[in-house]
Every structure is written in structure tokens, then in C-alpha cells.
Amino acid sequence: MLYNSEDLLNMIHLTKSDILHLAKLSGLTLTEKEVKELSYDLSSVITFFEELKETNTKNILPTSQTTGLENITRADKIDTNQTLSLEDVMYNANDNKNNLFKVPIILKK
């Protein structure tokens, strides 16, 4: 992606350490080149969202819901029809052992 000089001036700049922090949170390993590209790309995304600041939200309550629903619960019952077969459970697994998902070591002692 190419930016013109005016864009760059008004842009919020995510630093290299911001990008590395985000990469760590996302479990991604990035090359030097990717870090550079992402810092431009993500900065422009965030700059774009800056436009929202122009909206007047003085009398608007924050919300995380749009349906207006409340207190939606289910009875405490087992429905075995929802339970997957072992074959289905393991269908996309890279590796398994004794019907357990096998992944690279997590915690080194």
C-alpha cells in the first residue's frame, strides 16, 4: 500500500514495540519487513477510525448490544445430540494421541 505525504503527516504512528506487543498477543512471529508493513497498515486503519471522534456522542449511552434482549438463559440439561463424535472432534486436528489433541510443548519445566 502506498501513502501520499499528507496521509503520513496526519497519521497516528504505531511504533515497532506496539506492533511486537500486538504480535505477541496474537501469537504471531513477524519478520522485520512484516513489522514495518504492519506498522503502516495498522496505523492507517487506526487513523481511519479516528474519524469516529467527529461524531457527537454527548447524549449517547455506551452499548454492546443491539437486540434489546435481556436474561436469555437455557435450562441446565444435557443434550447429547449436540455432542460431537470423536471422529468429528479430531477431524481438523494436526495431530492426536489417544484421542487427545497433540500440540507443541506449552510449558517448559
Binding site: F101, K102, V103, I105, L107
Partner: peptide, 16 residues
């Protein structure tokens, strides 16, 4: 999670 080490190396097994 359970953590193991054998001749294939170190790995973790997951039961959901």
C-alpha cells in the same frame, strides 16, 4: 493440558 516428554520430543495433550 498435560505436558509430556518422550523419544518424539516434548509435547502437550489437550482434553476439552
Amino acid at each position: 493440558l498435560q505436558h509430556y516428554e518422550d523419544e518424539t520430543g516434548q509435547y502437550s495433550l489437550i482434553d476439552f
